[in-house]
Design a protein around this nucleic acid. Structure first.
Lengths: 348, 348
DNA sequence: TTTAGCACTCCGGGAAAGAGAGTGCTAACC
DNA sequence: GGTTAGCACTCTCTTTCCCGGAGTGCTAAA
């Protein structure tokens, strides 16, 4: 049996109607929406074929049809009309993204909330940590006898600093020595190796200095490892409760719990600018009957982040895809403009 | 009519039974739980009185009784037995609070998640921003011709820093002048006044320096204002869906939406170590038929934060109160130990 | 004041009935 | 051969009705 043009057109109507109403679609309604050029009986024959082909499903014998995952897939790949964002929408997106880069966390959670309320589904945002981030430069600023400030610039040019309280008094004149040591021995060094280095210089310096040095390194390791972690932020989970497929509190609870407790398992594909995962295409059990649309954005030149939307399989793919990629582009632009690196660490 | 001891005892039984089961409590069950010393008929008379007195309500004529807000209030104030935390629980709390102070946000959101999963209700955590935070000390570290690092220590001894890109080259030798200027004119100054100060020194220095100065001040204002904002974090909203009173998706949605979108309206009482708000005692509409238990913790010597729990009016007040104050104490201890200020800004 | 007894109320669940939507099949039509 | 009208049939959803159970409120006696 062949998938004729008319069958495809019918499938399209079914998918779009079902997305809109969440109700099985009947032959009569389809006939009307196709302009009355064919009768409902004809449609019924076609529908029956589409079920046999696996593109549609029938909740029970005498109900209308709903798309199967395979049907959604065909729709997404071939039938769906790509939407463009209206100027108004583009403006709204840009408005929503007017955060300050400084606080990456805030910006991203803000973006998450914005996209979620923009598509009316829960959303997630991930900034991929930079695994092998190293320190590029250290400074120590003496404050008083008992404390000094450690300043560390990282490979991505972000600067972190903290007040350190000294267990032992340190001679101010020795500070420069220490800074030199830090900059010569601990820049460009992966965190895993830092402690080894620390040991190796132990004998060269006084115990007081060594104590301060190890405090500094401990701080550096903390910060670098923290920066290396991938952070995932979810927003708008409560949007689910508006959807008929989640009126059942148990279903809703399962998914919402997943969104807040097991974020790590959200899809993080690493190819292509946008990916759509429909129902069972998701690896994670909790997402087996939901769909996920996920897009990537660039952070500077060589890092990528992801933003995604989670919804029912009858998600409005066209709109979500358009808006999501709008956001992704917005974020990319944002990072282009604001990202700090004037020059990257010359790697060779 | 008087509130006899027996009536109080009956009220206690009703409240505790209802908290456990979420089902109206009947006279027979009460009689049994009171050791069979009186018959159910006697209880019925008493129950009828308790309804007249406003402590109990009857969902419909032939149903058992449930506590009214007034009943809960009496229970909380006088009838409830204060619980102590078991050693195990205390340990768990301390374990959950083993975060690093460095990232205040993270610590608090972690605490929020912990308390939420500890009491099985949604929780919120607020760190009251320090409104009149000022800069205590500035430093500038030259990086290269086009950039330098600004380091600012704030009144609470937290240190913030960022890489600045210079629009105009600045003579390295002039840096110390600028740092002096910053420390003499811009420390201890409220953000609102900073721009005025900036103008007043405009003529004293070269345009290049002025540009860098204003970049620095802009950064300082940003950071200080950001730090002055009260931040509210919510966690565990999905816990609601486990409760019978929120199986109705609309109710759940309303409250969850409130928790994620209108956090600012969560109760922020400013007196006493712990406060319990029952049903209509809440000012906010969205909380009118929920209860909130909120405790405060100390951040250093003169700041306070809040942690709260939101749940149904039939919340398990005794347990929640005990655990919440356990957390509050844990947080207070944590800040005592880790909070940086070795000395506070001498205010006079 | 307490208690046993009893009629009454109300909710919740289950069965039955009916309406509605939609199908699948057959037979006729172009 | 594809298309269509017609019609019986299926299945769900809603409404209605009924019944059992839990619990009350009242009365009269202890």
């Amino acid at each position: 049996m062949e998938l004729t043009d008319r069958k495809r057109q019918i499938l399209k109507v079914v998918v779009e109607d079902y997305i809109r109403t969440a109700e099985p679609v009947g032959s009569k309604a389809i006939a009307e929406q196709m302009g009355g050029s064919v009768s409902s009986a004809t449609i019924r024959n076609e529908l029956s074929d589409l079920v046999d082909l696996g593109y549609l499903e029938q909740p029970h014998t005498s109900a209308g049809r709903i798309p199967s995952p395979k049907g959604y897939r065909l729709y997404v790949n071939e039938l769906m009309e790509r939407q463009k964002l209206s100027i108004l929408e583009t403006e709204k997106i840009n408005e929503a993204l007017h955060g300050k880069m400084e606080q990456l966390d805030h910006l991203l959670s803000q973006a998450g909330r914005a996209i979620s309320s923009f598509v009316n589904y829960p959303a997630y945002v991930a900034a991929t940590g930079r695994k092998n981030l190293t320190a590029r430069r250290f400074d120590l600023l003496a404050v008083d006898e008992h404390s000094c400030i450690v300043v560390m610039m990282m490979g991505d040019n972000r600067v972190k600093s903290q007040l350190l309280r000294l267990q032992l008094k340190v001679d101010l004149e020795q500070m420069p020595t220490l800074v030199n040591l830090l900059n010569s021995h601990f820049t460009g060094v992966p965190t895993a190796e830092m402690n080894k280095r620390l040991m190796s210089v132990a004998e060269e310096i006084s115990p007081q200095l060594f104590l301060l040095l190890s405090q500094t390194i401990a701080y550096a390791v903390d910060v670098l490892e923290e920066a290396g972690q991938r952070e995932i932020i979810t927003a708008g989970a409560s949007q689910l409760l508006k959807l008929p497929e989640f009126r059942n509190a148990d279903k809703a609870h399962e998914l919402m719990n997943f969104l807040s407790e097991s974020k790590e398992n959200l899809p993080m594909p690493d190819d292509g600018p946008m990916q759509i995962l429909i129902g069972p295409e998701n690896v994670t059990d909790a997402l087996k009957d939901t769909s996920v649309v996920v897009a990537s954005y660039d952070i500077g030149d060589n890092m990528r982040g992801l933003i995604g939307v989670v919804g029912p399989t009858r998600m409005n793919y066209a709109t979500v895809a358009a808006r999501l990629s709008g956001f992704a582009e917005g974020l990319t632009r944002l990072f282009e403009k604001q990202e700090l690196p004037p020059k990257e660490e010359p790697k060779k």
